[in-house]
């Protein structure tokens, strides 16, 4: 520890910056696409058609029941090459993170929808609204307000989980820590630096989300 080499951190600062931006990008993409998928899946799970509902439930079961790391590898080495003919780290990372987040967010959204009093859907249906209109105008707006905090937490998880993308040649933050360590064999400089950066990211995100939550009325 005595000879902590700030010079190599300085040398890598540019890479860390690029890595941080990619980490943020992956997390934002993950929470955004994951939310869209989550909404889609949650509604699919609540469908009366038992077969379709089962497919969506199976999806959620798979992505929650297997390690994200495994999912990333399957998508990177298997799914994306099969679809596009070649591997692509960033695309695979975004796909895996979104699909994984989608499964978790689906559970949150489903719980949020189910937490809305049945009287709300009955009142809207009795006014002649279709199921979709009732969902769109009455149930979801109320449910979304309740699940916003959970979405924030999912975003923070993604900041950390996206570090797994370093294993599939995606130059996010963790990737640069590993390449620094590979170059200089300096464990502390490499990993403590990125640990600090991750901490700053999650704390900042948390702070912003808490601030934001206070501003959104519960109505």
């Amino acid at each position: 520890m005595m000879d902590f080499r700030f010079d190599i951190i300085a040398e890598y600062s540019h890479f860390f910056l690029m890595g941080t931006l990619l980490t943020i990008g992956l997390s934002l993409a993950g929470v955004f696409l994951g939310s869209l998928m989550g909404l889609f899946i949650a509604i699919g799970e609540l469908l009366e058609n038992k077969f379709i509902a089962f497919i969506f439930k199976a999806y959620v079961g798979f992505f929650r029941g297997t390690p994200l790391f495994v999912q990333i590898l399957i998508i990177y080495f298997g799914v994306i090459p099969a679809l596009f003919g070649e591997a692509n780290g960033i695309v695979s990372a975004i796909a895996a993170l979104s699909m994984n987040a989608g499964a978790y967010i689906a559970e949150t959204i489903r719980a949020g929808i189910q937490s809305i009093n049945r009287g709300q859907s009955e009142a809207s249906r009795s006014l002649g609204m279709t199921k979709i209109q009732s969902m769109r105008y009455i149930i979801l707006p109320q449910a979304i307000r309740r699940i916003l905090p959970a979405l924030g937490n999912e975003f923070i998880s993604l900041i950390k989980d996206s570090s797994l993308a370093s294993t599939i040649a995606t130059p996010e933050l963790m990737y640069w820590a590993q390449s620094m360590n590979a170059q200089y064999y300096r464990v502390w400089e490499s990993y403590v630096s990125v640990a600090l950066i991750y901490l700053i990211l999650t704390l900042t995100a948390n702070f912003i989300l808490k601030h934001f939550e206070k501003k959104v009325p519960v109505k």
Partner: peptide, 16 residues
């Protein structure tokens, strides 16, 4: 249902 209004015991107004 458009032709049948319904009023519930616990109102069920849309709170948002």
């Amino acid at each position: 249902r458009q032709k049948i209004g319904m009023v519930f015991q616990d109102f069920n107004l849309f709170p948002h």
